[in-house]
Every structure is written in C-alpha cells, then in structure tokens.
Nucleic acid binder design. Structure first.
Length: 294
DNA sequence: CCCCAGGCAGTTA
DNA sequence: TAACTGCCTGGG
C-alpha cells in the first residue's frame, strides 16, 4: 500500500487515505492547538508552522504548506508510516468491546507532538477540562510565543520556548488562566531550560526509565507522565488512566469500581506495545457515547 | 449556591 | 505508602 501524495502550489493532497479522520484525530483529546473552522476543516499550529487539514471523500488536503515541510515535518507528525489496520486487528482480536470502540474512532491517528509543548500542555490539563486547557495554552502562546502571521483572519503564535517561560513571573503565567499550576509550569520550564540536551534525549530511554524522569518535573504525576510518554516520546505501550478511561473500563470490562493501578496492569497485559492506541480508542468511544458521565 | 473537571503536591497516620 | 485535602476557575 503506497500512499499517493500530490504536491501542489501551497498545498499537499493525499489520495485514498485510510484511517485518517480529522474529527477523530483532533478531537480525541491528544492535542489542544487544533480548532475546527466553519467549513469543518481544522487549523492548527505545531513546530512553529500553521497548517489547515480537511477531508474530501477519501482525499486529505493539507493547506498552507509545501513539499519540503510536508516531507520533513508533517509526514512524520501525522504518523503516516504507521499502518493502523495492523494495530486495529491486533487490538480487536478476541475483543468485541475494543472492536466496537475502534469502529467509532476508526480515523484516529496519534500525532507525533513536540515534547516541550506536550509536557507543559499536560501539566495544564490536570484537574481541568478541554476548553479551559485550550484557552490557557492559547494565552501562553499569544503572550509569549513567536508571532507567525495571519492565517484565516487570525493572528497565529508558536508555543513559547522553555527559556521564555522560565523567565516569567508566577503572576504572568497565572494571568494565562493556568491557576495553581503556574508555579509548576515555571519550575518545569527552569528545569528544561537548564539542561535542554538532557530533555531532548529523554525519548531514548525505555518506557519505565523515561517515566521515572518525567515524574521529577513539577506538576507531572502518573497520568500526565503517561500522556507525555505516549504523545511525544514514542512510547506506544504507555496507558494513561484518567477518570474517563477508568470509568469506561469499569463499565465495559470490570463491571465494578476498580483501582487505576489494576486497570493499568490489565491494559499492559492485554494490549502490550499497543496499549496507548487502545486507550485512545476507548477514550474517544467513552466521550462520544457519554459513557461514564454518571 | 454548590459541585466538579482528562490530578498533583504536600501533609498526615 | 496509603489516605486525605486544598487548589485556579468557570460552566452546569
């Protein structure tokens, strides 16, 4: 199965793409800087670039980019080398519940996000909800990120660097609606800025060692660490257990109140190296169905 | 008005 | 080391 990629002026089109649904990708909870436009396309910012993604039939259209950026950046960002059909088959083998969940989020792809941005974003995510998380991140970017120009009538900004955030006062970071997480953010920024090379090399450790190091950052606990492992460290065996996943796993598999640790172990045994994908399908399924709201 | 939201840190027992 | 509590903030 070879992808047919067509490079046009200012945009790139992929023909006959499967396992790629913008709504699933951008609304499954993995990212916070992608917003739906009126035409149902999504505009987002990553790696200091602004991109617009839409779907027409089975074609995916990437606007505001070029061949070089697509090949060097977006191809990897959208995980286009991974065959999701293989993952789906493995996960749904002897598991009708997972099979159903995968049908709902069949177009999910796990974005390869930037570690620093992901680290801070998920610190902000703790005990928080998605609109508020997005708002806080946007304020951080508008206040301290780099101006990238206007796209679709809106000024766009990059995610601020560790050095920039580290120099801000608690009040300034609080003013970005980060609340009591402001000191965590600054401490973590100082830590990353003091040794950027070490942070860049974190992904080279195995899951367990990588997690241990992530837990040393202020504001990073078990759940946030697993999100970071999965979304930007390439640890596809990570399995973040948040309240949604806890509730849906209890509802679908355990039929009773179950500690997060037990769920965690269950997922490790059952899904192994694909645990994170399973988590995403279950999470999206739970949210779309409203399972676990009560 | 109270309660909770994709948890964490800090403090007890 | 497990259990408990407070925490920004705003929408239900």
């Amino acid at each position: 199965m070879k992808l047919e990629i067509i490079y046009e002026k200012d945009q790139v089109v992929i023909k006959n793409m499967d396992s790629f649904e913008p709504k699933h990708i951008f609304e499954c909870g993995q990212c916070f800087r992608w917003d739906r436009e009126e035409d149902h396309s999504y505009t987002g910012i990553a790696y200091g670039r602004v991109l617009n993604v839409s779907k027409r039939g089975s074609d995916i259209i990437f606007k505001n980019t070029n061949k070089k950026d697509f090949q060097e950046l977006w191809y990897h960002y959208f995980d286009l080398d991974t065959n999701y059909n293989v993952i789906k088959e493995k996960l749904s083998h002897n598991d009708p519940i997972m099979k159903k969940a995968i049908e709902f989020g069949a177009g999910i792809r796990i974005l390869k996000q930037q570690p620093w941005e992901t680290l801070i974003s998920f610190i902000i995510s703790s005990n928080n909800n998605i609109p508020r998380i997005k708002k806080a991140i946007e304020l951080l970017c508008e206040g301290y990120g780099e101006y990238l120009g206007v796209f679709l009538g809106k000024k766009r900004y990059s995610f601020p660097s560790p050095e920039t955030v580290a120099k801000r006062s608690i009040e300034e970071i609080k003013a970005c609606n980060t609340g009591y997480r402001a000191p965590y953010i600054i401490k973590t920024a100082e830590s990353v800025a003091s040794n950027p090379e070490a942070f860049q090399k974190l992904y080279k450790f195995n899951t367990e060692d990588c997690q241990r190091q992530l837990l040393t950052f202020s504001g990073v606990g078990p759940k946030v660490a697993h999100c970071i492992l999965f979304f930007c460290m390439g640890k596809m065996d990570a399995f973040p257990v948040d309240v949604w996943v806890k509730r849906i796993m209890e509802y679908l598999y355990f039929k009773e109140d179950t500690p997060s640790k037990v769920i965690q172990q269950f997922a490790r045994d059952k899904y192994g190296g694909h645990a994170g994908f399973a988590q995403q399908y279950l999470f999206y399924y739970a949210r779309e169905l409203g399972i676990g709201k009560n």
